[in-house]
Structure formats: structure tokens, C-alpha cells
Simulated assay, not measured.
Amino acid sequence: MDRIVRLASQRAVVIFSTSSCCMCHAIKAFFHDQGVNYAAHELDEDPQGRDMEMTLARLLGRSTPVPVVFIGGKLVGSTDRVMSLHLSGKLTPMLREAGAKWL
């Protein structure tokens, strides 16, 4: 858990994903299309990735945790939560408050 918290706090927007996950690709493309500079941590390429994936699954209460988005070091959730925030107009203010850098 400490490593997740540390990594999630390194940038304004952090995405934990796996390189072969289509929803992970979609959320990264979404943030890119929004012009947001994010950090992505590919759990399948990390020696501790499986442990982090299990921890994220427990945090979200899901069996398939990725993608998981943190904004401003705070857990936002997966794709559905990000899209809900976007559609309600709450995502951009959240990104600005977190100090997200735009491309």
C-alpha cells in the first residue's frame, strides 16, 4: 500500500493499468484527448505489480481493479467514475485543483 500511495502522489494524475487492458488504453486516451499530462504505471511490467493489483482490487472492492485513477494523490476510481465526473462537469475543476499539467 505504501508504494501505491507514493506513486499516486508523484503526479497530479496517476493511472495504474496493465498494458493489455482495453479499458486502461481507453482511459489513457481519454486523458490524452483532454490534454492532461498523466503518469501511467503498468502493473504487468512491475515486479511488485501483482501485489499492487491485489491491493487496488481490495480498495475498489472489485476483482479486476485496473484501470485505477488517482487525482491529486486521492483515489478517484475506475473508468466509470472518471466518466461520471467528466459528464457532470466536476472532472476539470478537480484536475485544476490538483495542479494537473495540460499538454
Score class of each variant (00 low, 15 high):
54 M>D: 14
83 M>C: 00
74 K>G: 09
64 T>P: 02
90 K>I: 08
101 K>H: 15
67 P>Q: 03
75 L>A: 01
95 L>Q: 12
94 M>R: 10
76 V>S: 12
82 V>S: 00
58 R>H: 14
85 L>I: 00
90 K>M: 09
82 V>L: 02
84 S>D: 15
99 G>C: 06
89 G>R: 09
60 L>I: 03
72 G>W: 10
56 L>G: 00
78 S>E: 09
54 M>A: 12
50 R>W: 12
87 L>S: 07
96 R>T: 01
88 S>H: 09
72 G>L: 07
102 W>F: 11
96 R>V: 08
55 T>G: 14
71 I>G: 09
88 S>V: 04
102 W>I: 02
50 R>Q: 14
55 T>Y: 15
88 S>M: 09
102 W>A: 05
93 P>S: 03
74 K>S: 15
100 A>N: 07
74 K>M: 15
47 P>D: 08
70 F>T: 09
89 G>I: 01
48 Q>F: 10
56 L>N: 10
90 K>C: 00
49 G>I: 04
78 S>T: 05
100 A>M: 07
49 G>D: 13
49 G>W: 09
87 L>Y: 06
82 V>H: 04
73 G>S: 02
84 S>V: 03
81 R>P: 03
76 V>Q: 13
60 L>M: 06
75 L>E: 05
86 H>C: 05
89 G>Q: 07
91 L>E: 05
80 D>G: 07
47 P>R: 01
85 L>T: 04
99 G>E: 11
75 L>Y: 10
55 T>F: 14
70 F>R: 03
95 L>C: 11
52 M>H: 08
76 V>D: 12
57 A>F: 02
75 L>M: 03
57 A>H: 00
82 V>M: 02
75 L>C: 11
87 L>M: 07
96 R>W: 01
103 L>D: 14
47 P>V: 02
68 V>D: 13
54 M>E: 15
101 K>P: 15
50 R>S: 10
97 E>P: 06
82 V>F: 04
75 L>H: 04
102 W>D: 04
75 L>R: 10
93 P>K: 00
68 V>P: 13
91 L>F: 00
72 G>D: 11
55 T>S: 13
57 A>N: 06
70 F>N: 08
55 T>V: 15
55 T>H: 13
80 D>N: 14
102 W>N: 11
99 G>T: 11
97 E>K: 03
79 T>V: 02
93 P>W: 03
96 R>C: 03
69 V>Y: 11
100 A>E: 08
72 G>I: 03
